[in-house]
Design a protein around this nucleic acid. Structure first.
Length: 1047
RNA sequence: GGGCUUAUAGCUCAGACGGUUAGAGCGCGCGCCUGAUAAGCGCGAGGUCCCUGGUUCGAUUCCAGGUAAGCCCA
């Protein structure tokens, strides 16, 4: 006996019971233990931050990972699933600062670095519980109790080891580069961080006159959008090959690029007084705009540079080496001074002898403009809208500063990274040579250091006395080189800051560089640091590198996908992962990017509590491919629930209900498939075809096609197999056919449960446990411990599948014709006419005629060749065949066929096997395969047709048919009354019928056995007893009063 | 400004190595079936397959250019 399937339930509640079952029986652990000696499939979890609650996009990523891991486990792999947490970095510091009301580094230092990082540690796990609950609830099997955590000493030690490897290969170096800098956070940002914060802003756009020396009344017209950098100006750059002109403007001569004239002066072209090439202007000196202090190096003259354009501005570019990469390089090249009049706090230094000393640079812009205007140097001021980077955490504009920092020389391993990228399977594929490949090609050295507090400390020590540098690669080495290093030293600031090493060159004191490192480097070492390699688990790394599978959102292209590849290439010269599934973003229900400020976020819990995890998962898998941006529609989840899960559950409920009622032992006397009914063989063929396609899709990480195919199959199962087999399950005589029906549906349901288990782990397990475990105590206790189905080729019958599809198509047209006729399906009809089909198709219909009869309630199927009688015939060329043969002639042939007498041509074609067509002066001989005979509806028949075939119903009713129709009407009414009266399905009843209609009377007598059998009537009473359920009915217009009563 | 991706019914999505009647589900209207149904079936309305040009006998499909959206980069 199976456990009864109650109709009263919610999937969400059931899932909680399944979770309880998994927990109590350690099913997750067992699923791994079971495969301990199997071929490993290495999954690497991208560590999330637990300092914010998880959102739906996290659910997406987690269910994708889960489905792959479950699938691989069921197909016989050992899938270790270590969770991970990302913990370091600016986001955490920023949250803690907000919490403590700290706005700058000075306040932070005053608060105390030690106190601060302790707060960071708390903050990092603020939402860990939420993450745990969500992870468990959605059924993501990952070992959270053995997670790698980037803040742990073990993890940091491994990261240090990685850095030491880079150091030994001379790939870790200190450099000086212009970098985006956030004055509030007090740190430079990596390029991928900068990318997060571009916004469109309006900045001043000003044109300034630079007075030339030695050329009276002549000025360079220089453009800039950052007036605050003008006090640091040291040069003006022009394009060597551009044409420049000096023009007359209000008594002054202005030099600008010829191409910029119209944009600056409009239609009123000023008079050109002289022309130059850019190279002519080289070395011309000009008066500095501001006194920037004394510098020994020569400055304030014109240079040439290839980055100058004339599409914007004036063709003359202001150069301030302290504030731009191009500018910095120009300065280096010409040995110009680095004029830096802005401090780390983003304000002008007090030494500036101008009113804007101490002002924040952007606030100083108007003052500077006013100053220039007052001195008659301002030519034009306007606003300029462009994309400008802001700090992704604190939203303040970034400033480009020349700063010292530490780099990984990734450009040295660019070719290897490129090569390893080629070895990775990307899903979707275009990422490889598209977005990711492009990014690798444009690779620049990785700016690693952050002038911050909460992160993996950069393990570089520098000697106070001789400047010798050393990178420490382990705790042991730290203890060896340092004095009084505690055994339990924590590898964080400020603890490691206190460690002083002895210089092995000069015995001087070595102190640590104060920086911490980019937290992307932390997570990028996950393949190694999760094992505390090489200090532990040496054999694990060998097994687990590279990972077979990772999956994260597309924004990780420049993040984790890159950092893993970079560190992996650096360490092992191998790709870090073999398969990478890139997920796209999730849009809110309004189609806009989900964000709190827009208020279109969806809380996963509202769905998990209401519709449940399976429905949410199923929706995630089937709605769209994971690499397409998706609009998250809660209605879509309802659809998954009702359409797919509901249907499957109903088939399952149907099976259990009748298997129990009829006390069928589905495991005994199972008939061989060859001896089962055709519909059994059909659904089994469909099933095994499905197994192959699902496996194929899963091997290719196509996590959308696989469940979509399952969905389609379940629809066929419910709406064709069960629908056509219903009476075989219920009431039929015990015997081979009944046994076959039960065995078939049982096999199908168990197999579907297994197939769907990776996607819908809860419901699949419930089905499996009730269907399998209740019969076989030795079976695996959960579907997730079972083997994934393998297709049995011998059960696949492609012809049968095609034939059934064709027959269903015919039947569907029959339904349409019935609809048109207005005669309800309960009324049997004599004949169903079918035309326009080939001989093999006729055989198909004959073979499957029982389906046509039953489904359409017709007594006979007849074929006709007489197309004309029912349909309008047209002949069309078979373009696919004729196109290559005749090329241009095809259109002429089409015209000839369309204008000729279709009936006559068709007759000729059938009689002789070919047809001569005159078209644009040529004669073409067409064969039957060259021509499509198409049909169109002719009004006035109850006919339905598609392009080729048609069906027609004869609607004439004989007396016998009328009686049979009435009998079925009676059964229908009685069944509905049973239902209305709340009888049980198996209750036997006493029936009474009172009618003035002799027709009803006759129908009842003629079909008495049938009516009694269908309605489980054991007694027919002359008149109803007092407590019978009585209804006055109309049966096809005939009055009758029916009463039913349980016996 | 550059790269990548996407554009098909009101919505969510399929699809065609280029072939002349482009599909499904949801939603809407009408009808039907049903003692497995959180159902199902049928019919109807609803398409410039984003636009322009090219290649071709034939383009929604291939190519080029554009437009719009998304992501990434500057």
């Amino acid at each position: 006996m199976f456990e009864e399937v109650s109709p009263q339930f919610t999937f969400a509640d059931k899932e909680k019971q399944t979770l309880e079952f998994w927990r109590e029986n350690d099913i997750f652990q067992k699923s791994m233990e079971l495969r301990k000696d199997a071929v490993p499939f290495v999954f690497l979890e991208g560590p999330p931050f637990a300092n914010a609650p998880p959102g739906v996009h996290h659910v997406l990523a987690r269910v994708m990972k889960d489905a792959v891991c479950r699938y691989k486990t069921m197909t016989g792999h050992y899938v270790h699933r270590k969770a991970g947490w990302d913990t370091h970095g600016l986001p955490v510091e920023y949250q803690v600062e907000k919490q403590l009301n700290i706005t700058n580094k000075a306040e932070l230092e005053a608060y105390g670095v030690q106190n601060f990082i302790e707060k960071c540690k708390e903050n990092v796990f603020q939402y860990e519980q939420d993450w745990r609950e969500m992870t468990e609830r959605i059924g993501f099997w990952v070992n959270l109790d053995d997670a790698y955590i980037t803040l742990s000493n073990d993890y940091i030690e491994s990261v240090w080891w990685v850095l030491r490897q880079a150091w030994d290969k001379e790939l870790l170096y200190q450099g000086h580069k212009v970098q985006p800098y956030c004055y509030r956070c007090g740190t430079t940002l990596a390029s991928h961080e900068v990318a997060l914060g571009y916004q469109e802003v309006a900045d001043p756009s000003i044109f300034v006159r630079f007075q030339l020396k030695d050329r009276e009344n002549t000025y360079l017209l220089v453009w800039t959008t950052t007036p605050w950098t003008l006090p640091s100006n040291v040069a003006v750059a022009v394009g060597e090959d551009y044409d420049y002109v000096a023009v007359e403007d209000n008594g002054r001569h202005l030099i600008l690029a010829k191409e910029c004239m119209s944009s600056l002066f409009g239609d009123e072209s000023p008079q050109v007084v002289e022309s130059y090439k850019g190279s002519d202007l080289r070395n011309w000196e000009y008066e500095p705009l501001f006194d920037s202090g004394q510098h020994p190096e020569k400055a304030h003259y014109v240079v040439t540079a290839d980055f100058v354009t004339t599409t914007e501005g004036s063709g003359l570019v202001h150069i301030a080496p302290a504030f731009g990469q191009d500018d910095y390089e120009i300065g280096q090249k010409h040995n110009m001074p680095l004029v830096q009049v802005v401090g780390d706090d983003g304000r002008f230094v007090p030494e500036v002898k101008e009113p804007w000393a101490g002002e924040y640079v952007k606030d100083a812009d108007p003052q500077i403009i006013e100053n220039l205007d007052g001195r008659g140097l301002l030519f034009k001021a306007a606003e300029y809208t462009h994309q400008y980077p802001f700090c992704w955490r604190c939203d303040n504009p970034l400033l480009y500063y020349a700063r010292e920092s530490w780099f990984i020389r990734t450009t040295a391993i660019r070719d290897q990274m490129h090569q390893h990228n080629q070895e990775i399977n990307w899903y979707p594929e275009h990422i490889k040579d598209g977005r990711f490949g492009n990014w690798l090609e444009n690779n620049i050295d990785w700016g690693l250091s952050r002038e911050r507090y909460w992160g993996t400390p950069l393990p570089v020590w520098i000697c106070d006395d001789c400047g010798h540098q050393h990178c420490v690669g382990s705790i042991a080495e730290l203890q060896e080189l340092g004095t009084d290093v505690p055994d339990d030293i924590e590898l964080h600031r400020p603890y490691v800051d206190d460690v002083v090493l002895n210089c092995d060159k000069c015995s001087g004191p070595m102190r640590r560089v104060q920086d911490v490192i980019d937290c992307w480097f932390d997570s990028g070492c996950a393949h190694t640091a999760q094992w505390h390699y090489p200090f532990e688990n040496k054999e694990m790394l060998e097994q687990a590198y590279p990972a077979d599978f990772i999956s994260e959102a597309i924004d990780q292209t420049r993040g984790w996908f890159y950092s893993l590849l970079a560190t992996g290439t650096l360490l092992y010269d191998k790709p870090a992962y073999k398969n990478c599934l890139c997920l796209e973003l999730i849009m809110g229900p309004d189609g806009q990017k989900m964000s709190k400020s827009r208020g279109n976020t969806v809380d996963p819990w509202t769905i998990l509590n209401k519709q449940g995890a399976d429905a949410m998962r199923w929706y995630m898998f089937t709605a769209t491919t994971p690499w397409t941006p998706r609009t998250f529609k809660p209605e879509g989840i309802d659809e998954a629930l009702k359409k797919f899960m509901g249907t499957l559950y109903n088939v399952y409920g149907f099976f259990v209900m009748y298997a129990n009622l009829e006390q069928v032992d589905v495991l005994k006397e199972v008939p061989p498939v060859a001896e089962r009914a055709i519909v059994d063989r059909w659904i089994l063929s469909r099933l095994h075809t499905l197994i192959d396609s699902v496996r194929g899709d899963m091997e290719n990480y196509h996590l959308t096609n696989a469940p979509r195919a399952i969905e389609e199959f379940v629809d066929d199962l419910s709406n064709w197999y069960v629908r056509r087999s219903r009476d075989r399950f219920w009431g039929a005589e015990a015997g081979l056919d009944k046994q076959a029906a039960y065995a078939t549906l049982y096999e199908v349901l168990v197999t579907v449960a297994k197939l769907a288990a990776p996607f819908m782990p809860f419901l699949a397990d419930e089905l499996y446990r009730n269907l399998v475990c209740s019969l076989d105590p030795d079976a695996p206790a959960s579907v997730h411990l079972a083997e994934y189905p393998v297709a049995d080729v011998s059960l696949k019958d492609a012809q049968l599948e095609t034939d059934m599809a064709f027959t269903r198509d015919v039947i569907s047209m029959g339904h349409a014709a019935r609809n048109r006729s207005g005669i309800k399906t309960r009324q049997p009809l004599a004949e169903f006419t079918l035309g326009g089909i080939s001989d093999p198709e006729k055989q198909t219909v004959n073979r499957l005629a029982e389906f046509v009869h039953d489904e359409l309630n017709v007594k006979a199927v007849v074929f006709t060749e007489d197309l004309d009688a029912f349909a309008q015939v047209t002949l069309k060329p078979n373009f696919r065949v004729l196109g290559p043969k005749y090329g241009k002639g095809v259109q002429a042939i089409a015209k000839a066929l369309a204008t000729g007498d279709a009936v006559q041509m068709k007759a000729e074609l059938e009689a002789t096997g070919s047809l001569q067509v005159e078209a644009s002066g040529e004669t073409y001989t067409l064969e039957q395969s060259d021509i499509d005979v198409q049909t169109q509806n002719r009004e006035g028949f109850f006919v339905e047709m598609d392009a080729k075939k048609f069906v027609a119903l004869s609607t004439e009713l004989t007396h016998e048919l009328t009686l049979e129709g009435l009998a079925r009407e009676l059964v229908n009414k009685i069944q509905n009354m049973r239902k209305d009266a709340d009888f049980n399905v198996a209750d036997r009843i006493k029936l009474s019928l009172e009618t003035p209609s002799s027709l009803v009377e006759e129908a009842f007598e003629a079909h008495r056995d049938y009516i009694l059998r269908e309605t489980l009537t054991t007694t027919v009473a002359q008149s109803p007893s007092g407590n019978a359920f009585t209804v006055a009915q109309k049966l096809n217009g005939e009055p009758a009063t029916l009463s039913v009563e349980q016996v």
